[in-house]
Design a protein around this nucleic acid. Structure first.
Length: 327
DNA sequence: AACCTGACCAACCGCACATAG
DNA sequence: CCTATGTGCGGTTGGTCAGGT
């Protein structure tokens, strides 16, 4: 369907933003808030495309933006998340407070992508010298996990802000209409922290449902045990994420796939992936402030594995959730 | 000093998705 | 259901700069 361009390109300023434009935009947004980007330039008196204003604000002018000096920890996390998510820069950025998708994308393209590529070539030859295929160093192991993702959880990109878990779950029959099952959920985006995790009742909302997924998953050749939660980063530190061991999980899953449905090691993996504190936090209801709207069932936590395994299969996952391409 | 090359990164572009009317 | 609109995403482009010749 045709649509009008977001702005008339003729006569618009393009290219680098001037300090004056930045100031005008910043002050306008301070006064009126974000949104309505199409009309914003006109109202603010900027000779810019609305999209351009939005981009400038999101990537550079926002007060919480952290620019440059990507730390080794952040770098490692980016590699881990890229391994998990692929080029889902916005999702990756969502897990690095203050970082933007554009910055991470650029950083990847200019630094990490090259590193990883180099490493792949290196590790390919390394493997010849290590019959077991075990990387011979921590660094090598770290880089290895960033190899092209055979286990990338392919999601529809969206920022997860809220997901609700129904405190009164009921079974959802397979094939149920999940058309509006959001991208967030598809991305495994489950918010924990001060906003208690919850799911609405139309969706994956019970231990039984998760179990169903794992049953479906039984036939899959590749079981993905990666789980991605949209953590409230101020509560769950980067260190928690870094302490989790994605590559080990991946290795385990490869080792276990032939023998079971991936459930037998679910408990261990969950425990390794999430810190004890995080698990305890969720089991306690995901809230320390007495908000008891949600009690995350321990089984539910464990069964996240099944869920994400399920999501790991694009095809089946989308079919069952009814979130496949619809156009 | 002039030129070339590659790296970096801000900005642009086209498309997809959600939603309101 | 269809269309228009607003917004967000990922890929790509092009300007700038540093280093090498």
């Amino acid at each position: 369907m045709g649509r009008s361009p977001c702005c008339a390109k003729e006569g618009m300023n393009r290219g680098a933003w001037t300090a004056h434009e930045d100031k005008v935009l910043t002050e306008y947004i301070k006064l009126h808030g974000e949104g309505r980007w199409r009309n914003l330039p006109k109202k603010a008196g900027l000779n810019r495309c609305g999209k351009s204003c939005r981009l400038r604000w999101l990537n550079y002018l926002r007060p919480d933006i952290k620019r440059g000096n990507i730390s080794p920890d952040e770098e490692e996390l980016i590699i881990r998340l890229h391994k998990l998510l692929g080029n889902r820069w916005s999702l990756i950025a969502g897990r690095l407070p203050g970082r933007t998708d554009n910055e991470i994308k650029n950083y990847w393209n200019t630094n990490l992508g090259k590193k990883v590529h180099d490493h792949q070539q290196g590790s390919a030859s390394d493997l010849k010298h290590h019959k077991n295929g075990e990387p011979n160093s921590k660094k090598a192991k770290m880089m290895d996990m960033a190899a092209p993702a055979s286990h990338v959880v392919r999601t529809k990109a969206a920022k997860c802000t809220k997901v609700f878990i129904d405190p009164h779950p009921h079974k959802v029959p397979l094939g149920h209409d999940h058309q509006h099952c959001t991208e967030e959920r598809n991305a495994g985006g489950l918010m924990f922290g001060d906003k208690p995790a919850a799911m609405d009742d139309d969706h994956i909302n019970s231990t039984q449902s998760f179990s169903s997924f794992s049953n479906i998953n039984a036939d899959q050749e590749n079981v993905t045990s990666d789980f991605l939660a949209d953590f409230a980063m101020d509560e769950i530190s980067l260190a928690n994420l870094l302490n989790s061991d994605f590559p080990e999980i991946n290795h385990d899953e490869l080792n276990h796939n032939g023998s079971d449905n991936g459930m037998s090691h679910c408990v261990d993996e969950t425990a390794r992936f999430f810190s004890e504190g995080m698990l305890q936090h969720w089991k306690n209801g995901g809230s320390d402030d007495g908000d008891d709207r949600v009690q995350v069932q321990p089984n539910l936590v464990l069964n996240f594995h099944s869920y994400t395994s399920f999501l790991g299969s694009d095809h089946q996952g989308e079919e069952c959730l009814g979130v496949g391409e619809s156009r």
